[in-house]
Amino acid sequence: MLALSYALPSIIVFVASAALILTGAVGVITLKNPVHAALSLIMTLFGVAVAFIAQQADFLAAVQIIVYAGAIVVLFLFVIMFLGVDRREGVEVQPLVGQKTLALFGVVVTISGVVFMMARSHWVTGIPSLSGSKLANGAHNVNQLGTSVFTTYLFAFEATAALLIIAVVGAVLLARRERSTGEAQ
């Protein structure tokens, strides 16, 4: 009854995207080889893109593929291959002194809490939008998105420029080779 009250295509799309997302995500955290993990990540990213399209965020879906799959994961693979991390020992860190079970426990508790809390508030309170304009369907929502970025989120948009500059300067600084030989002369 629950499922049948919704249109079949949308259910199929949901199931497909969920399968992609979850399979990929589980792959990321279980696969040993970083390249395989990256491939799993791409799977998840596609799943998310599908979920975006299913919710009329097709522009974002495209951007999702372009930015994440087209650039971020490529960058991952580039570094993996460049450093040969998959063959040699990887960069290992132990950020938290938590054990696996503890982490699992924490995450499970948190997520069930999230789900519970969301269920308690009937998933969304359904209030009308307070800011920005109503979401239109189809092609117009790209325009709307653009308008929103240049009005409501103008400052944030400008800030991203700064963020990217810092990131680029930082990355160049970090990845630059040692200057020992150059300065010794």
Binding site: V35, L39, I42, D58, F59, A61, A62, V63, I65, I66, A69, G70, A71, V74, L77, M81, G138, A139, N141, V142
Partner: peptide, 21 residues
């Protein structure tokens, strides 16, 4: 599709995987 030409960008982003992998 409404995002039209972005599909082309996205796919050109994906096509690199073939070569890389």
């Amino acid at each position: 599709p409404p995002m039209g030409i972005l599909v082309m960008l996205a796919m050109s982003g994906i096509s690199v995987y073939g070569v890389m992998l």
